[in-house]
Simulated scan of single mutants.
Amino acid sequence: MNFSFRTAAPNELAGALQDARDYTLTLFECYAAAGLDLPGKVPILPSINPPLWELGHISWFAEWYILRDAQSSDPTAAQRTSMLTKGDDWFDPNTVSHRARWKIELPSTGALKTYCREVLDRVLDKLTRVKNEHAALYPYRLALAYEDMRGEALASGLQTLDVVLPQQLANHVIPAWAQGEIRFPGGTIQLGSVPDSGFVFDNEKWAHPCYVPAFTMDSTLVSNAQYSEFVADGGYQIPQFWTTAGRAWLMAQDRSAPRDWLREGRHWRCRRFGKEIALPANEPVRHISLYEAQAYCTWAGRRLPTEAEWEFAAMSGHPALRWGDLWEWTCSPFEPYPGFTPDAYREYSAPCFMTHQTVRGASFATRLRIRSPKFRNFYLPERDDAFIGFRTCAL
């Protein structure tokens, strides 16, 4: 399914929605096989939802915006009641706190799978009567993007909980690419998305001119081999490499290397989805916090790219530039573009402005149909559980 969900026609959306649900269920079964599907069996971690709650919530989201014709995420916005008697009480994230999701008495796994199937069946049936127009297709594209993003979060959770991956991800190998530097001349770009580009996330609105001075950027991400030199040089023990916030984070973590790295004599191994392997030297370093990326840059005499530089490079089409293996930290705080207003899913961006950091690109676990050089992802600086790395720029 090599197409963009942003401009997908009804028949493409129908196939993609089914594909997304099949993938969600595949990931859920990985948790179930490990005995980690039910709320009481999953540790309470800030980056994870109980998988059974996640399964119900994903379908509730589609029901809310498509079947119940909600025009916003306001708890009173739905024009029809949920197919589940207590659907809103269980799955509305505006009223169910993260910690409360472990305490809810949810229906059985079988009952929630039935709900998921019925929601999708009704969504696909309704889609057959929808015109191929942006306004009419907006909630379907939103629901698809949301399920794809939650799917990546479920895949990330498998790594966090040391669970074996489904085959289609377990077989993914990031190829080794020769790293070099690319000199970009700079200039004025239209940062953000334009109104006639199909589906647009609210934090991409709207395209506006942004001048980018000339800059030099790595063609690929920092590798495990490069990062291990920083570790070997005492990078985690030298305070001068770390920001004030980074030092506070490092002290709380008591860490001397990236998470999931394991020392074996003079070499490193790492945990990958329930398995221990030799650290792949030429792969990009993953599961890195912003603080670790910043410390490496200080040690190496480099810097992280700005969000505008990253988009300039990605939109250039330069043949040597590779992106999409991992999400990439930028040095730009996550801020609204001029004139920002929230869309129907009001909590998608606005609550995260100024506290999160902008992340660009995509990872190997990101579905192809939602990848875009315009996509703005965002994480708290301390997040190191996601499929995230970084590249550097010359000072």
Score class of each variant (00 low, 15 high):
residue 235 G to M: 07
residue 216 T to A: 13
residue 310 W to N: 05
residue 54 E to G: 04
residue 367 R to L: 12
residue 146 Y to A: 01
residue 266 R to W: 02
residue 170 A to N: 13
residue 150 R to V: 05
residue 118 E to G: 01
residue 168 Q to W: 06
residue 132 N to F: 03
residue 300 A to R: 15
residue 95 T to Q: 15
residue 52 L to V: 08
residue 390 F to Q: 06
residue 131 K to W: 00
residue 15 G to R: 06
residue 49 N to K: 11
residue 163 V to Y: 08
residue 375 F to H: 13
residue 207 A to W: 04
residue 104 I to E: 08
residue 367 R to C: 07
residue 189 I to S: 08
residue 172 H to N: 12
residue 5 F to V: 00
residue 311 E to D: 07
residue 32 A to V: 02
residue 383 R to W: 08
residue 271 R to K: 11
residue 212 V to H: 09
residue 178 A to Y: 12
residue 152 E to M: 15
residue 344 A to F: 02
residue 308 A to M: 14
residue 6 R to N: 01
residue 283 E to N: 12
residue 248 A to F: 03
residue 352 C to I: 02
residue 224 N to E: 12
residue 329 W to K: 08
residue 353 F to R: 00
residue 222 V to K: 04
residue 125 D to Y: 00
residue 190 Q to C: 10
residue 69 D to N: 10
residue 194 V to T: 14
residue 192 G to V: 15
residue 359 V to T: 04
residue 218 D to I: 01
residue 122 R to S: 02
residue 100 A to P: 05
residue 128 T to P: 00
residue 300 A to G: 03
residue 104 I to H: 04
residue 10 P to C: 01
residue 355 T to I: 14
residue 159 Q to P: 01
residue 86 K to H: 14
residue 93 P to N: 06
residue 12 E to Q: 02
residue 330 T to L: 06
residue 251 M to P: 01
residue 106 L to Y: 12
residue 29 E to I: 02
residue 254 D to W: 05
residue 235 G to R: 05
residue 237 Q to K: 09
residue 83 M to Q: 15
residue 293 A to T: 04
residue 309 E to W: 07
residue 103 K to W: 02
residue 287 H to M: 13
residue 264 E to V: 13
residue 186 G to K: 09
residue 112 L to N: 06
residue 290 L to C: 03
residue 235 G to Q: 08
residue 270 C to H: 02
residue 176 A to S: 13
residue 201 F to W: 03
residue 173 V to T: 14
residue 377 N to D: 12
residue 217 M to V: 15
residue 375 F to K: 06
residue 238 I to W: 04
residue 186 G to R: 07
residue 373 P to T: 07
residue 324 G to M: 09
residue 73 S to E: 06
residue 51 P to E: 10
residue 262 L to W: 06
residue 301 G to E: 11
residue 96 V to N: 05
residue 77 A to I: 05
residue 272 R to I: 11
residue 295 A to P: 07
residue 279 L to P: 01
residue 14 A to M: 02
residue 377 N to C: 10
residue 348 Y to D: 00
residue 290 L to T: 03
residue 4 S to Y: 00
residue 175 P to Q: 13
